[in-house]
Amino acid sequence: MTPLPDFFESPLHLPFNSTSMDGFTLLPPDLEPPGTDGWWLALRSNALLLSEKGSIIDLPYGPCPADTSDSKSIFIGTWQGRPVRVMAMNQEEDVPSGFVLESLLSANPRMQPAHLSLGGLASQLLHWEANSCFCSRCGAALQRLPGEWGKKCEGCHYLHFPHIHPCVIVAVRRPGEILLTRKREWAPNRYSLVAGFLDPGECLEEAVAREVQEETGLRVKNIRYVGSQCWPFPSQVMTGFTADYAGGEVVVEEKELEDARWFPINALPDLPPKRSIARYLIDGAGAEAGTRDAGRGSRKP
């Protein structure tokens, strides 16, 4: 059973956001305290190495729990007053005795929200490290800037900082129904919401309207911001919206989607896990519809 809650008070409390990291402080790598034991975030792809004692799994603490022959650890900050270091595990390395690999993308992860969120941050920072060795302008090597996460090109001196890519995701509604889409590679009967990256020169609301029309042929109105979620796979921030149906018939954009259709809010297919802002928006649409229906039922003619 997952220790994640079945309900999140707001998008702010969703996993992968800093609020879920329970007091973690991000610090630049060059501020690592020398010779101090701490927590380890060791990753193999999107799986986090955790210590396992009976039914209890936890972050490793103390000496490095994995082989460091091909990977250098990186200090990223402090958690519970102790240093936190990340490292990428060798793909062929055996899992050490007393440890287990747990996927960060599991629908029902066994780890605590703080562990899941810290693992996501580790994945995002390792992605930045792996893709920031050389300058994208001139090809020269990059050197870390002291006291921050940026890097400076040795050749043209251009400054580089971790890339975060803004995306929109939207729950489109009409009375009693919600618009859901699915991609071919998803699990059978799994549906989610229209989502996509921003284009140059558009604001978030414009991206919502464009993505809905491109993927489904529908027009929307009353676009309203709900909240956001860091999505570190590898480096997105998902900005969540609701919108009302304004017109058109569903026409599926088959290059991206396998299906798109209206579903009754009380008869939904398989949905994204509750750790995602997609599910938060879908659940919110259902709760709002239920409130409206209850309100109508209480009115006297």
Score class of each variant (00 low, 15 high):
residue 176 G to Q: 04
residue 15 P to D: 12
residue 14 L to F: 08
residue 4 L to A: 01
residue 135 C to E: 02
residue 194 V to Y: 07
residue 186 W to H: 02
residue 243 A to D: 14
residue 101 L to Q: 03
residue 47 A to Y: 07
residue 125 L to V: 14
residue 173 R to I: 00
residue 163 H to D: 11
residue 134 F to N: 15
residue 261 R to F: 00
residue 81 G to P: 13
residue 110 R to S: 10
residue 159 L to H: 02
residue 120 G to T: 11
residue 149 W to V: 04
residue 134 F to M: 09
residue 164 I to W: 11
residue 7 F to A: 08
residue 87 M to S: 08
residue 194 V to C: 12
residue 52 E to I: 01
residue 45 S to A: 14
residue 55 S to Y: 09
residue 253 E to G: 05
residue 41 L to F: 10
residue 242 T to Y: 12
residue 142 L to E: 01
residue 39 W to A: 06
residue 191 Y to R: 12
residue 115 H to Q: 15
residue 39 W to P: 06
residue 168 V to T: 04
residue 265 I to R: 15
residue 207 A to H: 00
residue 283 D to Q: 15
residue 241 F to T: 08
residue 260 A to M: 01
residue 209 A to W: 05
residue 189 N to M: 10
residue 190 R to W: 08
residue 292 R to G: 02
residue 145 L to T: 13
residue 94 D to P: 10
residue 26 L to R: 07
residue 251 V to R: 13
residue 208 V to Q: 02
residue 111 M to V: 13
residue 139 G to L: 06
residue 165 H to I: 06
residue 83 P to C: 01
residue 109 P to L: 08
residue 217 G to K: 11
residue 147 G to W: 07
residue 258 E to I: 05
residue 298 S to Y: 05
residue 301 P to G: 12
residue 204 L to N: 00
residue 101 L to G: 04
residue 23 G to N: 13
residue 233 F to M: 13
residue 9 E to F: 08
residue 151 K to C: 01
residue 98 G to V: 11
residue 287 A to W: 09
residue 290 G to F: 05
residue 2 T to P: 08
residue 205 E to D: 06
residue 185 E to Y: 15
residue 208 V to N: 01
residue 287 A to I: 10
residue 268 L to M: 00
residue 13 H to R: 07
residue 117 S to E: 03
residue 136 S to V: 11
residue 7 F to R: 15
residue 259 D to I: 10
residue 276 S to I: 01
residue 157 H to K: 05
residue 129 E to A: 09
residue 182 R to G: 06
residue 155 G to H: 04
residue 123 S to Y: 13
residue 88 A to R: 13
residue 235 S to L: 00
residue 195 A to C: 08
residue 202 E to V: 03
residue 126 L to M: 15
